[in-house]
Nucleic acid binder design. Sequence first.
DNA 1: ACCTGAACACCGTTCAAGT
DNA 2: ACCTGAACACCGTTCAAGT
Lengths: 205, 205
Amino acid sequence: MALIESRGYRALTMAALARELRVSPSALYNHVRAKQDLLRWIQDHVNEGIDASGFATEPWDVALERWARSYRDAYARHAPLVPVIAVAPVAGAAHTIAMYERVAAGLQAGGWPAEAVIDVIVAVESFVLASALDATSPPDIFDVGDLAAQAPVFAAAVAARRAADPARAAFDVGLTALLDGLRTRLARLQPAPSGETSSRARGVN
Amino acid sequence: MALIESRGYRALTMAALARELRVSPSALYNHVRAKQDLLRWIQDHVNEGIDASGFATEPWDVALERWARSYRDAYARHAPLVPVIAVAPVAGAAHTIAMYERVAAGLQAGGWPAEAVIDVIVAVESFVLASALDATSPPDIFDVGDLAAQAPVFAAAVAARRAADPARAAFDVGLTALLDGLRTRLARLQPAPSGETSSRARGVN
DNA sequence: ACCTGAACACCGTTCAAGT
DNA sequence: ACCTGAACACCGTTCAAGT
């Protein structure tokens, strides 16, 4: 059905979708209560393609990094869904729930206490989703224009930033820092494990 | 002019604004090229209220934390602007540029190299904006409904999460980790300073 | 159970015409 | 320079009527 959004989200209108399916717009409301339902359906489909496989085999931090990168790349291609996700409840979205189950199980196996698991997921997810949005922003977004004189340090910093993919560079800085900080937090949360370093601790399973 | 959005963003329609100003809708287009202009104007106004004062007096990490908290709280009250910010160029928005100037100057004075400053800002800002969006999400967003059997670990983790303000708890976890990781990165970037600890280093000015 | 066709209540925006 | 009024080209959604 909705495999046909190859023409961007701005064109994803109920009338256009109906035309694609050679059906009248009102017919869609036999399969969907509102457009919001359709977007949640697409979201669940996108989430099915996110790589959460590492949580079954790798240390939690390695798996979390792989998941975060896969998550960001997926939503960089589906940026208009980002504001939807923030509000849409997860109930009924089977693939989405399956993804969260893998992440939660991996974190808990890695030593995170149950009451902290969701906070970690939400924190990483927040950073990931906004970074996906950032990846779609115009490259000249930080050009100060004729106000450069009032912001010399900022303008110079913008000019000094010449990475091939600035949005990815910022994502890398943030993700690395976030993971590093989470490792530190977990290490403080639990007594030092025997033998392994804390960043590689698998915990019980 | 636009001090009158006390009735929420869903009601912020060109027609409603025109009615508020006792003017016809088409008259607005003498002051604004499109609705997007209006939203950027409001954004600049919101940014004026964000606390970036710490960068002139405090160590960079203390100032960054204060800025991030103030930033999140402001946009938790203006969540519909978040998707706009991600795309809207900064040019012409005087207060927004002034804010970035303070942040950039503070980071550079704290020892961050010019070419890394924007990446740090973008990373923190991404996390902040998505957390603001998250703060407006319904509290039952993670209820798995009738799929609980397929996601036992996740469902248990959701149940174990009983903070008074879950969104703020996740924000705290993420911000603390992010700042911690950034301190570590800066310490690795520069040779150990004399006398002070790296987290308190002010650098040159 | 699923469709059509007409209609409704909106959107943002343009443009000729006025003062 | 700034306004009005009418119009345009859309939106998502509802609902009676058909098969």
